[in-house]
């Protein structure tokens, strides 16, 4: 079959399609719903007892502000990567990763005497479970939304998508978990987030490319 014949065949079989909404619209829709879900989830699971005091702590606010930026910029990257020609450069891709590194530095800068292995282990799996509950619905929603688009680089796209959903869950968990020790936060809050992003990168093709669809 020659190319001209393919052109005629494709034109002959053409059916109207429903255009995908704009990138920003879809991203804001998802981000809004994810924020709403995590806020409700955090309230349902019960906030930390010292929250009223913590929200006046500038360091705590800065850390959470950084997580919020990681969430927003990762989502921005993921949604832009899902549309051909809308991808942004390497600098834009690096920004959420750099912000996450800045967050890690802030957490690691907490009082070193609090970094005891015992403190890190206590109730740690409960944090992972709560984080998974908070991340699940936003992660599923973002994957479904991105599958409708055409990610040409599914590994990066789903990596950023899961980083975004995961960082929002970590943010939610910071309102739930009263343990601020660096070892606990880095191991049990950051650890699962990095694992989710890596899973996203590894399974990107499987998660985002519909069977039979062309990447």
């Amino acid at each position: 079959m020659g190319s001209e014949e393919i052109v005629r065949s494709l034109a002959r079989d053409l059916t109207p399609v429903r255009r995908l909404r704009g990138i920003e619209w879809r991203m804001l829709l998802w981000a809004g719903l994810a924020l709403l879900f995590v806020s409700i989830g955090t309230w349902v699971l019960g906030t930390r007892p010292d929250l009223s005091g913590k929200i006046r702590d500038p360091a705590y606010l800065l850390e959470n502000g950084l997580l919020l930026l990681v969430f927003a910029l990762s989502a921005w990257n993921a949604f832009h990567l899902s549309i051909p020609g809308a991808e942004r450069g390497a600098a834009a891709r690096m920004l959420p990763i750099l912000l996450l590194l800045a967050w890690v530095c802030l957490i690691a800068g907490h009082a070193p005497d609090a970094m005891t292995p015992t403190a890190a282990r206590v109730s740690a799996w409960r944090c992972v479970l709560k984080m998974s509950c908070l991340a699940l619905a936003p992660a599923v929603a973002v994957v479904l939304m991105l599958r409708k688009a055409a990610p040409l680089n599914p590994a990066w796209t789903s990596g950023f998508a899961l980083l975004s959903a995961g960082s929002l869950a970590v943010l939610g968990t910071r309102f739930l978990c009263a343990k601020d020790t660096p070892l606990h936060v880095l191991l049990w809050h950051l650890g699962p987030l990095l694992a989710a992003a890596l899973v996203g990168i590894q399974l990107g093709k499987w998660l985002l490319i519909r069977p039979g669809a062309r990447a």
Partner: peptide, 22 residues
């Protein structure tokens, strides 16, 4: 590929970057 991804083209954006990315 263009045929199967045609729903992702946003007429508010330029066409050629979309096409050349594919």
């Amino acid at each position: 590929s263009i045929h199967s991804h045609r729903h992702t083209y946003d007429p508010a954006r330029p066409f050629l970057p979309w096409m050349y990315a594919i």
